[in-house]
């Protein structure tokens, strides 16, 4: 029986061959129609987005970065050790001795909409790959009924992680709980309950009317 890793490596070789043939074909085509120099011209890389932070030569390791900057200038931050702070949402997805957690550093990090925070855009955050021992300290995960813990992690950022199929992630080595989360208290909306009751009674009356009217049209 072929082991799955062997299957993947065979597949990988086949894909590489396929891609090589395709690339040679494309280059040959370009060389014939546009000349060798143009065919081999290097395309410009995607430039840095100056509206978001990016590392310079003297940027120290472990600097705190937000999720938007990591996405907008992913290639520049790739392979750097950074610090990232956010609310833990969803759940910890355990994979052996490691675990996936998701940290949101958006406008709802300290207070979410269910706690009547101001609307201020989408969620944004990052996936973090961390040891389950470190993640065990997390008490609250953000959802409808909870405001999650806010944690600060430090680790290496990958624009396309070679270990995780090209996912953009942070491999964290430390975790510090900045704020413990809590349950969200929802106040029962009485006026909404009364409106709903009135509408449902009205619907019941209309339903009776409909039966009467339909019986007339049936003949």
């Amino acid at each position: 029986m072929i082991h799955w890793q062997e299957t993947i490596s065979v597949l990988s070789v086949d894909l590489k061959r396929f891609w090589l043939t395709f690339a040679i074909g494309v280059n040959l085509f370009l060389s014939i129609f546009s000349g060798f120099a143009l065919a081999q011209a290097t395309p410009p890389n995607i430039p840095l987005n100056p509206d978001f932070t990016f590392p310079g030569k003297d940027t120290p390791q472990g600097v705190e970065v937000n999720s938007a900057s990591l996405v907008e200038n992913a290639n520049a931050w790739n392979g750097r050790v950074i610090t990232f702070k956010g609310e833990v949402i969803g759940e910890a997805m355990v994979r052996g001795k490691m675990v996936w957690i998701h940290l949101n550093d958006d406008a709802y990090m300290w207070k979410n909409i269910e706690e009547e925070a101001k609307l201020d855009g989408y969620n944004s955050g990052h996936a973090v790959w961390i040891s389950s021992d470190l993640a065990m300290g997390i008490r609250f995960f953000g959802d409808f009924k909870h405001e999650g813990d806010v944690v600060k992690i430090a680790g290496m950022f990958h624009a396309a992680c070679p270990q995780h199929g090209g996912d953009m992630d942070i491999h964290a080595s430390t975790l510090e709980i900045v704020r413990v989360g809590h349950s969200v208290h929802h106040v029962f909306n009485t006026s909404r309950a009364i409106t709903a009751a009135v509408l449902l009674v009205l619907a019941l009356v209309l339903y009776r009317f409909r039966i009467i009217i339909r019986s007339r049209y049936a003949f």
């Binding site: 029962f188 909404r192 449902l200």
Partner: peptide
């Protein structure tokens, strides 16, 4: 989730009033 349940009851009422109407 009681408040979302109320939201759905209210919306069901509105749909039925409109539809049956």
């Amino acid at each position: 989730e009681w408040n979302p349940a109320l939201d759905f009851l209210l919306a069901i009422g509105a749909c039925l009033v409109f539809g049956l109407g």
